[in-house]
Design a protein around this nucleic acid. Structure first.
Lengths: 336, 336
DNA sequence: AACGTTATCGGGAACGTTCCCGGAAATAGT
DNA sequence: ACTATTTCCGGGAACGTTCCCGATAACGTT
């Protein structure tokens, strides 16, 4: 697939490459007639500047890297939509990588991304990642990084999160106000920032309503496969006294719980009320319709990308980094 | 963010760039000691070859473009997973674009992709695309293209599809065998190849069981928003005699139907049986659990990417192109 | 007429890498 | 001791583009 270059145009028109280049960039020091000639010929030959050559010259790839746990997850695919919107609008393209919730793959992805010379990195950390040195080093070397949703307080940069504390607080309080007392909390990894915050919101709601905190009701889940979740659910149901509500911290966990409770023939919400932290598109069509704390995924992606591009395009490092806290929305349906 | 280059190494070690380059590529004509020296220094300085420079030299971007209608769709995100697996394994990276089921955006995406100088293109056409000249031209210019799922018979290249006819036939026959006679079919666009095939499968099943084909039961839907689908469903329900089953041709349509039927208080499957052509992860958790024809999305992505990379890496154009037909799986649940 | 201005263009280096070509030194072969 | 071969390395062009530095005319100014 041969593509026409500036040299081809120059040769065909008996001009120098500099002249052609300047004509194409509409430089003032080119004769309007020459300019016209070049432009027309370029149009005719369907000339497209080679972005690779430009990247080499400018030492800039016009690409940003995005690492998410998985794209087959409605929250992240929506976030990616937001990221792409801003990125494309500002002339960047997006390279998407998946960590699959694995620390090793995340490190490998980071490696790929630096090798690919992206101009910046947008990342939502895997829940198996407790050590963030791979990101810290990169950041100290000067690569612009913005964290979103799954952030870490060890990295000093812009962050975009949702109000996890408030969302969890509202969800828990809603369960309490509807008469629940033994509320189990299934969450992801204990070192994940968002998990900590949601747990804190959960505890604060309990405290406000004078319900004692019971550690046995908290489940940190390393894996997301339905078998693992089912085991956790079974163990929780064997507790005495039995829990009367589940509050889950993610898409996958909510779905897994729902599935397990169905299989175990537990009536929702009569026996167990269920509310999740999720962006499932079909949440209202589930059986029963799932109550959720909904996150503004698209907006998160948009603002995170915006911050990153600002970071990339500003020559000097900003003195202070901001953490943007977007509001969640609690949607009560049949499951609670 | 300054990165160390071959020149830096050469200068530091008092060697020429050629020597360093050859040492790094483990050339036989470099003294083992020198090689050792270079390798150690490169390792110490964390040298990474600049892929942009390589791309410029080799006139190869090591990137493939992927255009799908939307990634926030489980079928496509699974397919992308498959694509990425093969692509990364073979050293390519993946640039994802979304057409949002819009012809204009698809054309724009194609433009971006050629401007970005990808080595090949993987595409699942938007349902509003009736004219595929933008792809044809590209293909004739020599860009390797592989179509998957949403293919077009106007483009003569490798294709990866599922057995749409058989899947639709089985779904329809299943409805017939469970006593349904007035089976409505909601499908996407009339010029979409997969829509035609599924319609053909539907008709064949009717014919086999001597059920007359009624055109009024077929709905081509241009839009996927719930309002539009709801209107279609309402109109179908006003028919006389009323349909007793719906067979939908996509994720979105199945979900939309389910939603509309719920809102209209129609009992599923008592009044209307429902079966979809979808890869929804939560299909078994819906209310009622949704019967579906399931497509091997991940495998489709994998094989499509494999074919494309073979195409890219073979110097000569293959004489004949193949169409790979993967099998669907029908999963009967509560909705039918 | 001599000079400064302006308009218009070309030459060539640079970005990071590979690879062809050539060349010096060391070794082997007679 | 002389040539032939091997070993090891450097120079420089090339990929496509931009941009700095000149260069040549034509023009205007005194």
């Amino acid at each position: 697939m041969h593509t026409v270059t500036i040299k081809d145009i120059a040769k065909a028109l008996n001009l120098s490459t500099s002249t052609v280049s300047r004509a194409l960039r509409d430089s003032y020091e080119i004769n309007p007639e020459t300019k016209q000639l070049v432009l027309e010929y370029a149009e005719k030959m369907n000339y497209r500047p080679n972005p690779i050559a430009l990247s080499l010259r400018e030492n800039k790839s016009w690409a940003i890297g995005v690492i998410v746990p998985e794209i087959a997850n409605h929250f992240f695919s929506q976030a990616i939509n937001g990221i792409e919107e801003t990125a494309y609008k500002r002339g960047y393209h997006v390279m998407i990588f998946q960590s699959n919730e694995s620390y090793e793959r995340e490190v490998a992805n980071v490696g790929h991304i630096v090798a690919r010379r992206v101009d910046g990195l947008l990342i939502s950390i895997s829940n198996q990642t407790s050590d963030v040195n791979h990101l810290k080093e990169l950041h100290e070397q000067g690569l612009p990084i913005v964290l979103f949703d799954r952030v870490s307080d060890e990295i000093h940069t812009h962050k975009v999160v949702t109000d996890n504390f408030k969302g969890a607080f509202q969800a828990t309080e809603h369960l309490i106000l509807s008469g629940r007392r033994r509320i189990a909390h299934l969450t992801s990894s204990s070192f994940l920032y968002i998990a900590k915050e949601r747990l804190a919101g959960y505890r604060a709601a309990l405290e406000k309503h004078d319900i004692p905190f019971d550690e046995r009701l908290i489940y940190f889940s390393k894996a997301f496969d339905s078998e693992y979740v089912r085991n956790s659910v079974e163990e929780l149901l064997m507790l005495n006294p039995k829990p009367d509500a589940f509050f889950t911290a993610s898409d996958r966990l909510a779905l897994g719980c729902l599935e397990a409770l169905h299989e175990l023939n537990v009536k929702i919400p009569r026996e167990i009320a269920l509310i999740g932290f999720t962006n499932l598109r079909a949440a209202h069509l589930l059986s029963p319709a799932l109550s959720t704390v909904c996150q503004p995924a698209f907006d998160m992606g948009k603002t995170a990308a915006g911050l990153l591009l600002d970071l990339i395009e500003s020559k000097k490092k900003p003195i202070e980094f901001k953490t943007i806290n977007l509001q969640t929305e609690i949607v009560i349906r049949k499951s609670s």
